[in-house]
């Protein structure tokens, strides 16, 4: 069992767990992920690593309640345990001194982009971060991201906080102003797709972190395969970071919908058995 050392409810439906996993903490780097399984009947799902503390032997993950597994996860409290916590998996994000890097986070991916922005800043990059959410009540870690960015732009879809609109709008303006050497965009697939489409005409290298369905997370099953630059790649071992201009986004989006019917059925069962019932 991997104990939950700390639970924070960040915003509606988004939670943070700090989990005791010394082996994973010892190796974690920005951009990597873990596979978790709650209990004997649970599925294996990937969660991106948001932070780690090697001394304490802990790893921080942030997740949003979407389907059965994430709802079940959200029911857990400090002191509870998770059956399996495996990682760090995938390749770390390539960090170097690129010059000026724009980090774009959609929704709760601000937690994913934070350690990447921090690593980029430590390498001497000028980091401009853009974080976007649907509305003000879904904004978290603004201060944290600001602390590792030279500039921070916040957008909300409804204009309730920061700038009204999507993250792609300030991104486009920054590109038009020039001097951007690299873009890292992380969030829902559709947001990454449009971020990559925004940067493409400017020819600025754009790294995205893909989030397909996975099972083992170690290159064994091929469930997470995507098409990048016309070649089939496994996100779990070849990624999760890829060049956003080469990703076949429609294929990724279609494959993410593989189990929509089953996810619905599973969630109905979960609700009807009164949450964490048998």
């Amino acid at each position: 069992m991997y104990q939950i050392l700390l639970k924070e409810d960040l915003v509606v439906k988004v939670h943070l767990f700090k989990i005791a996993a010394p082996n994973v903490a010892g190796k974690a780097r920005a951009g990597q992920f873990v596979i978790i399984r709650i209990d004997e009947k649970g599925e294996r799902i990937p969660l991106t690593i948001a932070d780690w503390d090697r001394k304490e032997g802990s790893v921080t993950v942030v997740f949003m309640e979407v389907g059965t597994t994430t709802h079940r996860l959200a029911e857990l409290k400090k002191g509870d345990g998770i059956a399996n916590f495996i990682g760090p998996l995938g390749k770390p994000t390539h960090i170097d001194n690129f010059g000026t890097v724009v980090c774009v986070a959609g929704g709760f991916a601000v937690a994913t982009i934070y350690p990447i922005a921090r690593a980029l800043r430590e390498k001497g990059n000028r980091v401009t971060s853009i974080m976007g959410a649907r509305s003000k009540d879904l904004i978290f870690w603004e201060d944290r991201l600001r602390s590792v960015s030279n500039q921070l732009i916040v957008t909300t879809d409804d204009g309730s906080y920061g700038r009204k609109g999507l993250v792609t709008e300030p991104l486009k303006e920054l590109l038009e102003a020039g001097g951007v050497d690299r873009v890292i965009a992380i969030g829902p697939s559709i947001m990454m797709k449009f971020s990559a489409k925004t940067t493409e005409p400017f020819g600025v290298k754009t790294i995205v972190s893909l989030n397909p369905i996975m099972v083992d997370g170690t290159g064994m099953c091929g469930c997470c395969r995507v098409s990048v630059g016309g070649a089939t790649r496994f996100v779990c071992v070849d990624g999760p970071d890829f060049d956003g201009h080469e990703v076949d986004w429609d294929l990724l989006l279609a494959r993410q919908r593989t189990y929509l019917d089953e996810e619905k059925l599973s969630f109905e069962q979960y609700q009807s058995r009164g949450k964490s019932g048998p």
Binding site: K41, E43, T68, G222, L251, R255, Y259, E262, E263, S266
Partner: peptide
């Protein structure tokens, strides 16, 4: 080959045997 519904045998068997998808939705893996 990357169409939905095309599996590697490894994935299909892992879902069924290791993750017990044959007992879905009692087990969470479909």
């Amino acid at each position: 080959e990357n169409l939905n519904g095309v599996y590697s045998a490894n994935e299909f068997l892992t879902r069924v045997n290791l993750m017990k998808a044959y007992q879905f939705p009692q087990y969470d893996t479909p």
